[in-house]
Design a protein around this nucleic acid. Structure first.
Lengths: 327, 327
DNA sequence: CTGAAAGCGCTTACAG
DNA sequence: CTGAAAGCGCTTACAG
C-alpha cells in the first residue's frame, strides 16, 4: 500500500497536522521540523492523496475546460490544440490539472457540466467559445461558479478574454487595401457568432476610412464552416462582378476559396485569421495569439476563483493583441 | 450548502448506506425504497460529492490522457482533436471524465504523471503516442498502473490499439501503382517512429509485389514534421530523376509537396494519411479511423482496469481498420 | 511552533 | 432487504 500522512508523521515523530503544514510550507513550522518531515516523505516515497485533500479542503486544484459539442467545426480548427496548450502551460505552473467537459449535444454537455460543478470536480471553468445564450454558461452564472469565457459574451456577470475582433477585421482589410485592392470581398460565418460579426464590422470601417463604398454583394455570411462553403461562396461572389482582394474570417473558408482561385488561375491578395500559419499560400494572416488567449484565460480564472472565495465576486475582462503575419 | 447523503437519508427515512445503494442501483434494494430515496434526491437537488466517493471507494471515474510534449507536431495535426473526440464520446457513455496530462518537456510531463498516478487522480491512462523507450510509459508499467497506448509499443506488458500501418502503407502504394505510376516517391518521418517505419515497409512490399525495383533515392525520411520539409524534400527528390507518383506519411508533408508541385505546374497522383480530409487537393488519403482508435482505446482501458482489479493483469491488443478515401 | 480532535461526504464489510 | 459502525486520508480551527 501507498504510505499516508500518518506514516510520515510516525516516522518523523510529529503529528499529522504538522505534516500537512510542511506540505503547505507554512512559515510557522521550524526549518528543522520541515527538514525532518521531508526526509521521511522521501524515504517513504509519500504522495498526498488528492481526493482526501479535496474532500477536506473543499478545493480540487482542477479546472474544467468546456468544449462545444463534439461535431463542431472547432475540432477541425487549429484553435483547439493551441488554446489547450496555452491553458495547460499556465495550469502546470500553478499545480492545476485540466479536466475536459464535452458531449455529443447540448443536453449531454449540460448534464456533464452539472455533474462537474455540483459534484465538486473542479474549482473553476474555462469556456472555449463565446455564443449568445449558451445554457452551460448560464448554468455556471446561476450557480455563481467561477468561470471565464474565451470569446465575447453578453452577460455582464462573467469574465472573459478575447481579441479585439473589430480592430482585427479593420487591420486585415486595411492590409488588403494597401495592396491596391478596391473591390474587396468578405467571407464570414453566420451573424450570431460574435467573432464573425465583429470582424465584418471592422471590414466595413476600413472601407469607410478609405472611401471605398460598401457593396453588399461582396459580403457573404456562411452558415457552415467548411472548405466547400469557401469554394462555392467565392465562386458565387465572383459571378457578382469583379473582385481584387479577399478577407476571410476563417482558414477553412480560405482553403476552399484558394482551391477555386487556383483552378481558375486567378490571383488575388488574400488575408485570413488563424492560430497558426494557414496551410495554403496566401499573402498574410491575422494571428489571433491563441496561446496567449489560453494562458490569460487561466490567469483570469485564478483571480476569479480567489475573489469568489473572498465573497466579493469580481468580473475581469482582458483583450489580447493580434498581429498581421505576412507569408 | 449543497445537500449530502445524510440529508437524503433523513428526508427519505432510511440510512445513508441505503442511499448509497440506491445510487448504485443495487438489486438488493426494494423498488419502493428506491423510489422514495430518488424522490428525496430530486427534491433536495442532491448530487454526490465525487471526492468523497473517490476517497471511500478508491476509484475516481476519471481517466488520464497523456499527450506528447506540447511543442510537438502533434498539436498541429488533426489527429489530436479527433482522437480526443473518440475517447470522450465513449468515456461519457460510461460516466468517465477525462483529465489531460501534458507539459513542456519530458521532466515536467513525468512529474505530472507521477502526481497523477500516485495522487490517485485517475483510474487509468491512455497514451496518445507510441515511442521507443518512453519514460512515462515505463513508469506506468513499473507501477502496474492500468494503461493503453494508441500506437505501437515494444513492451509486452502494455495494452495498445493501433492501425496496421504496414498494410496501410501497402494499400496506399498499391493505389498509386494502379494509377499507372512506376516511379513512386515516399516521404516519411524519422525511422524511430513506428508509424513511419511501418508505412515505409508497406510501400516496399507493394513495389515488390508489382515487380517495381526499390530505388532508395526516391525514399526520404524527414526528421521534422513541417510543410517546409515536405516542400524541400520533394524538390530534392525531383532532382534525383523522374517521379510519377507520391506517397507521404503525413499531411503536413503533403501540403508542402503540393505547394511545390503547384508552383512547378507538375501533376502527380498523390496519396497521404490523415484523420480527416486533407486541406489540399490530392487523389486520395488513407483514413486511419482516428475516432475509432480513440473509442477503442477507452474500451480497452476499461477492460484493463477491470482485470487489474481482479489481480489478473491482462494485456489487450487491437488493430483498427483503415480505408482509402478518394477525393 | 505544534498537537489533539473533529470533520469533509462518501462506501463497505458485517450483521441481521 | 436494510442499518450501524468503521474507515478512506486528508485539513482546519482551537488551544496551548
Amino acid at each position: 500500500m501507498a504510505s499516508t500522512i500518518k506514516d510520515v508523521a510516525k516516522l518523523s515523530g510529529v503529528s499529522p497536522s504538522t505534516v500537512t503544514r510542511v506540505l503547505q510550507d507554512k512559515s510557522s513550522i521550524s526549518e528543522a521540523t520541515k527538514k525532518k518531515v521531508r526526509e521521511a516523505m522521501a524515504s517513504l516515497n509519500y504522495h498526498p492523496n488528492v481526493n482526501a485533500r479535496s474532500l477536506a479542503s473543499n478545493k480540487t486544484n482542477v479546472i474544467g475546460v468546456v468544449l462545444p459539442k463534439d461535431s463542431d467545426i472547432f475540432y477541425q480548427n487549429s484553435f483547439f490544440p493551441a488554446v489547450i496548450r496555452g491553458i495547460s502551460q499556465t495550469a502546470a505552473d500553478h499545480q492545476y490539472s485540466i479536466q475536459l467537459c464535452t458531449g455529443k449535444d447540448t443536453n449531454q454537455r449540460l448534464a456533464i457540466l452539472k455533474d462537474t460543478i455540483l459534484g465538486k470536480r473542479v474549482d473553476g471553468l474555462i469556456f472555449l467559445y463565446g455564443e449568445i445564450e449558451d445554457p452551460l454558461v448560464e448554468f455556471a452564472i446561476d450557480q455563481e461558479f467561477p468561470a471565464v469565457v474565451i470569446g465575447k459574451t453578453l452577460s455582464p456577470l462573467i469574465s472573459f478574454v478575447d481579441n479585439n475582433n473589430e480592430k482585427a477585421g479593420f487591420d486585415a482589410t486595411e492590409y488588403i487595401i494597401q495592396k491596391g485592392a478596391k473591390s474587396i470581398a468578405f467571407i464570414g460565418g453566420r451573424d450570431q457568432l460574435f467573432v464573425s460579426r465583429d470582424r465584418l464590422k471592422g471590414y466595413e470601417k476600413a472601407l469607410k476610412k478609405y472611401d471605398i463604398p460598401i457593396n453588399d454583394s461582396l459580403i457573404a455570411q456562411v452558415s457552415e464552416f467548411t472548405r466547400e462553403q469557401g469554394y462555392h461562396t467565392l465562386k458565387e461572389l465572383l459571378k457578382e462582378g469583379n473582385i481584387d482582394g479577399l478577407v476571410t474570417a476563417d482558414s477553412l473558408f480560405t482553403e476552399g476559396a484558394v482551391r477555386y482561385l487556383n483552378e481558375k488561375q486567378i490571383h488575388l491578395p488574400i488575408i485570413t485569421f488563424d492560430s497558426v500559419q494557414p496551410s495554403v499560400r496566401i499573402d498574410a494572416y491575422v494571428d489571433i495569439h491563441t496561446l496567449e488567449l489560453g494562458r490569460s484565460s487561466f490567469k483570469l480564472l485564478r483571480n476569479v476563483i480567489k475573489s469568489y472565495n473572498n465573497k466579493n465576486m469580481m468580473c475581469y475582462r482582458q483583450i489580447i493583441d493580434h498581429s498581421i503575419k505576412e507569408m
